[in-house]
Write a protein that binds this DNA or RNA. Structure first.
Lengths: 350, 350
DNA sequence: ATCGAACCCCAAAGCGCTTTGGATATCAGA
DNA sequence: TCTGATATCCAAAGCGCTTTGGGGTTCGAT
């Protein structure tokens, strides 16, 4: 059932039917009703390719997912980000075009998306320090919003980000206020921009009290449970073991907790943990008070906001670069407590 | 830069340029080379909407993601499944169209995807018992592959599934062989088909030894860490506490472990855990031997296989329903051991 | 009657590609 | 020289929609 069929079936021209369906005023309310009814009755939906060809709008936003068959890491944030985007996208009739870039040709994938008219804009995920995608996308003239920010990028671009520096500064201050001085940071991969900012916030906090962490107390790795476990185990066994651990993800925090308890120590008393919490659906930091003291910022909310921005950028291309900075909230959980000095330690052990 | 521009630039007709680019034999190798070079030089890529309109192929497969703003649960399997699909999709030039169905109208979303020509086929995720989508998709004439199977569905359809019943039978037998008789099952949501099959395998295994679990030893919930924790804590505190726990996800197993250790017990000695392991990238069951005894079956591999099947179904629609049954492998980890009877318990406690 | 404005509708031209059905040129064989 | 393949290329017709630029009708005002 296409437009021609439907219109001849109604004894109207395709033009009129099209206008009736798209809400143009040049058609009487009587015929509009007739058209809408017939369309619904026959389950007519305009072919989106034809419509897109005619209007120039793809009604889809792109997301390029790198899939390097070798050492790839699937982004654990991915699903929740998309879920956040869902409401606004479906409300506006947009879909998400997921383009899988296997191998080296991630740049080609972006170019292809733009040139072939598959999308009206893209979301840039997991930005790296000095990310090359900004320049490229600007050259392509494709609207885009970065989820995160990019250090070393001078040109203006639209982004939505959580204030990573501030969040980790807050987390660090929290631990310092509890008397901790030997704090370790289990961070994300070194080339991720957010990891860089988090380290920054941590170092600033330490420096403000005249402290500087041991270099081996700052570690970078994919944010998995076993990283948290292995790193924490090693830290606790080495000299100058930290009394508190800052982790970049709840998953890593779980691993740290496992390592601490395996040593017969108690989280929140012997060793404190503060983590960042993206509020992922499948990784809830539950309990009241919650299990982990955390800097909390919902990645779903970020997804929602990101798409609101992108759609606005698509609608009005010259509305200038948009920025949204989200603030992470520090929630007190059971995983952090005052540092044990010699007396309190002895007391605690009785 | 479109086909017309490129062809007039080359002094050729659009026909010839199109044929040259698409590898048709009616064009001399000399001009083909000239065309390919010019196309590369100007970064020409055919508009996919126009091409799709002309050929009838959308070069995309659909995935409908329900986003019920209220009590939604994002599928934790999602990202890895897609990553598995990535290689084959990008190799064949396909993309994934993610359609977010908010609210009630999931059916409409499928219909829309089909009628508007946005996709050439779809993957059906997380099938429910007696899932309505099969009938609908068949009526739509849209090729599809179900990730999972559907109890109570008589008609033939293509699916890829892990043998859930067999896997949980194996896991149950493993625990029974170790002498456990009071085994609990922390399963996924009751209406998910896979949860139903897993329970089946569990019950079969128990029945084969003349056992039947307490009803409160079988629990259904979203598979999160805190479900594992809360359920295990409750189980251990109640009468007839289980000596072994079967969980449907590594995440739940982590929670169970936390609960067990919080009680001062040791996993694998006092209480055994066997879990199913989807081999998610961000949830590795690492160590040698691995931390958890598990039935292992990669969801990424399932994603890869599912798309291979779907693309074949798209290429040759009458190649009949395809089926792939994957076998989960039981890997021995440190989380399961012989049941402690009174003597061995006394011995272990010394 | 006549005229202009409203109102309702339509024919046809695109959008950028593929594909059908030739057209032209080349060349070996009769 | 003529013929029929063979090899190259092209004009034009779609694919299903939107949108431009009118074209009739109706109706109140002149």
């Amino acid at each position: 059932m296409n437009l021609k069929d439907l219109s001849s079936l109604l004894g109207l021209s395709p033009t009129t039917v099209s206008r009736a369906l798209n809400g143009y005023p040049e058609v009487s309310e009587a015929t509009r009703a007739r058209v809408l009814e017939a369309a619904a009755a026959h389950g007519y939906r305009p072919d989106s390719r034809a419509r897109s060809l005619a209007t120039g709008r793809a009604m889809a936003v792109g997301l390029v997912v790198p899939v390097n068959s070798r050492h790839e890491r699937v982004n654990p944030i991915f699903a929740d980000f998309i879920a956040g985007a869902g409401d606004i996208l479906s409300a506006r009739g947009y879909d998400i075009m997921l383009s899988l870039a296997s191998g080296e040709d991630e740049a080609g994938t972006y170019r292809s998306l733009a040139a072939r008219g598959r999308v009206d804009g893209v979301i840039v995920q997991a930005p790296l320090i000095r990310d090359w995608r900004i320049k490229m996308l600007r050259d392509l003239g494709l609207p885009f919003v970065v989820h995160g920010r990019i250090s070393g990028e001078d040109a203006a671009y639209s982004w939505i980000d959580m204030d990573n520096r501030r969040a980790f500064r807050k987390a660090t201050d929290h631990l310092l206020d509890l008397g901790h001085t030997r704090i370790a940071l289990l961070n994300g991969l070194r080339d991720m921009d957010f990891a860089h900012r988090r380290e920054d916030g941590f170092l600033q906090g330490m420096a403000a009290r005249g402290l500087s962490p041991l270099t081996r107390h700052i570690q970078n790795a994919p944010m998995t449970e076993d990283f948290g476990y292995a790193a924490t185990t090693a830290l606790l066994e080495a000299e100058d073991a930290p009394t508190a651990i800052l982790t970049a993800s709840v998953l890593v925090a779980f691993g740290a907790r496992r390592a601490i308890e395996a040593k017969g120590l108690k989280v929140g008393r012997d060793i404190s943990i503060v983590t960042h919490d993206d509020v992922l659906t499948y990784l809830p930091n539950t309990g009241s008070p919650p299990m982990f003291t955390a800097t909390r910022s919902s990645v779903r909310q970020a997804g929602e906001q990101a798409l609101e921005m992108l759609l606005q950028l698509i609608d009005t291309p010259d509305c200038g670069p948009l920025h949204t900075l989200m603030e992470a909230e520090l929630v007190q959980g059971t995983s952090s407590g005052p540092v044990l000095n010699k007396e309190t330690r002895a007391h605690a052990e009785t």
